[in-house]
Amino acid sequence: MREPAEDPYTEALMQHFRNPRNRRPLPPGEALAEENNPLCGDRIRITLRMADGVVRGLEYDICGCAVSIASASMMSCIVEGKSPAEARRLAALFQRLVTGGEISQEERSELGEILAFQQMRSYPVRRKCALLPWRALEKALNTLENRKEEAAG
């Protein structure tokens, strides 16, 4: 019998799945970005406010699995108070975490409970679920930048 890989439903993940932070129904007009997972039809819509150059209040509406819901919940917590550049760096770091790249000690402590998603390294098919909210965040940041440029231009 083979040793099963540790499955993705760690205590931290289940805790966010059962009690997701910052989740609320978003009317389509309110969302800055939407992202779908064609594998299973999961959807997330996301909005965030910027104040003094940092993220204040990221909210999302999600129809998805435990992995994607917990990922969205933890993401909404960690980007609070971060600049767009920092949020993008975190998105890249998260991608590295789930796809198996090197993570420094410093980065580990920065990620905190999000480290739970390291398990996704053993579940390549489910990585897309974990990444879904982060892709939506990147899209939302793009939307905000484009709006700013349009306003400036």
């Binding site: 099963p4 594998l39 299973c40 039809g41």
Partner: peptide, 25 residues
Amino acid sequence: IHPHDLAQFLARENVAVRAGHLCAQ
């Protein structure tokens, strides 16, 4: 329960099933 979560949990119990849109969206 999302089908992918269910299928993943069943895998833990050595039960192999399919989850998703089954190529019949």
